[in-house]
């Protein structure tokens, strides 16, 4: 379940980046694209509160580095509790 959730967050982060590229390429006028981006951003807000516990559960898995920077969240630039510290982005 933890890996599934982690993979979902990485996929969400990827979706956000793909949508941003399409929007920058002139897609802002497309209502569907705009809404998809807004829904993805709202989803990233919703998962934010789960991130610290999820990173803790991922523990020493190297996947923790990828998950911690996949989506914007308020602890993104802080060292996560536990782990090696390799995911620091400061």
């Amino acid at each position: 379940m933890v890996l599934e959730e982690a993979a979902g967050i990485v996929a969400l982060g990827m979706a956000i980046r793909v949508l941003e590229e399409h929007l920058r390429a002139g897609g802002v006028a497309e209502a569907g694209l705009r809404m998809a981006y807004c829904r993805a951003l709202a989803a990233s807000v919703a998962v934010e509160r789960r991130m610290p516990a999820l990173l803790e559960e991922l523990a020493e898995l190297r996947l923790v580095d990828l998950v911690s920077i996949a989506v914007p969240w308020r602890g993104r630039f802080t060292k996560y509790a536990g782990g090696t510290g390799a995911g620091q982005v400061e």
């Binding site: 920058r24 802002v28 807004c38 829904r39 993805a40 807000v45």
Partner: peptide, 23 residues
């Protein structure tokens, strides 16, 4: 929904010329 609210607000920002162009 939160996504729809964000989209509403984004459209208001565009209508008021408060976001930079993306072209």
């Amino acid at each position: 929904s939160p996504g729809s609210v964000l989209d509403q607000v984004w459209q208001v920002l565009i209508a008021h010329d408060l976001v930079p162009p993306l072209d």
